[in-house]
Simulated assay, not measured.
Amino acid sequence: MHTMWKGTISFGLVNIPVKLHAATENKDVKLRQLHKECQSPIKYQKVCPVCEREVESEEIVKAFEYAKNKFVVLTDEEMAELQEEQTDKAVEIVDFVSLQEIDPIYFEKSYYLSPNEGGSKAYTLLRQALKDSEKIGVAKMIIRSKEQLAAIRVYENTLVVETIHYPDEVRDVKEVPNVPEDVKTDQKELDTAKMLIDQLTAEFDPEKYKDNYRTALLDLIDEKKNNDETATATDKQVPDNVTNLMEALEASLDRAKKDKPAPKKKTTTKKKMKKNA
């Protein structure tokens, strides 16, 4: 499993060298966009609207837009210095809380933690302590150039980091439009709804849930591929140097013919006739 990050997690005087691994993967079927006419993949270019030309990566700088068309430019060196200052700090668990106290809306992405060299004993200690206390650790850490609030918990004998949103990243629920407040509910309808919930109540088994759309899409792709319903991108016409040279020579010859002065008429015969007379 690919290691995304190496660092140290500490609680109290205990330091745990760890590695971070992605716990989930996006299995969405990625579709390309083709030009309908020639079946070639569409390219997206970075173009400057003022210079009216494509811009290379080394010409691009990062900036924060603090007002319309007003920017604060940040250099790569300044960004790297900030990241280095934060990365050098150990990830410290600052609080231990109950998992039930964190609403799922705060959870963002999951990562597995494995012990790095010499960290197995401390890793096992934290894992067992979290199990016995039924608590999770709340910590701060840098992931992909961003300081993250994170929850460290146990999942099937492995420590897991759950990145969680900061409170100001969760939108105010009061801004959701048209949410009914006090609407009287018919008791009979409510009882029926509760009965339906009871009938559909079961233990959560993630294996029973499948992505039917993704499965159907992959089946359709396989069917069209097996029936040779495929498209091949048109190769871009690369200029042939030989052809270009021949065209250049022919063009030069034509030009030379046009520019060449017309030949003078010969008068030798008339001169000879006068001399002999």
Results as ranks from 00 to 15, higher is better:
A202D: 09
P104N: 11
D191E: 05
I102K: 00
D95N: 14
W5M: 15
N178K: 14
R255E: 08
I9N: 04
E147C: 08
K70A: 11
K89R: 15
P180I: 02
E78I: 02
K140S: 13
I221Y: 03
S114Q: 04
K270C: 00
N116I: 08
L34F: 01
R53F: 04
L13E: 05
E134M: 08
K260S: 13
T24W: 01
K62V: 00
R53P: 02
D168H: 14
Y209N: 10
Y209S: 05
E223M: 06
C38Q: 01
N244T: 07
T268G: 09
D235K: 15
K140A: 15
T215P: 03
A90Q: 15
K70Y: 07
K236D: 06
I105M: 09
G119M: 02
V138Q: 04
K30E: 06
H2N: 12
K121C: 03
D103E: 06
D211V: 05
Q187I: 07
A216E: 11
H165R: 13
D191S: 08
I105L: 07
M273V: 08
K270T: 07
K140Y: 15
A90S: 13
Y123N: 08
N226M: 11
C51I: 07
D172P: 01
I221H: 00
H165E: 11
K266W: 03
T24H: 01
I143T: 04
A262F: 08
D88I: 00
S252K: 05
N276G: 07
V72Y: 15
I16K: 00
D186S: 09
D95R: 12
E85N: 15
E84Y: 15
K174H: 11
V176N: 02
Y213K: 13
V50T: 10
S40C: 11
A277D: 14
K109D: 11
Q39V: 01
G7S: 10
K19P: 06
R214I: 04
I197Q: 13
V179M: 09
I9G: 09
V160A: 07
P261N: 01
A262Y: 05
S57C: 03
R144N: 12
L99P: 02
E56F: 06
M273W: 09
F11A: 14
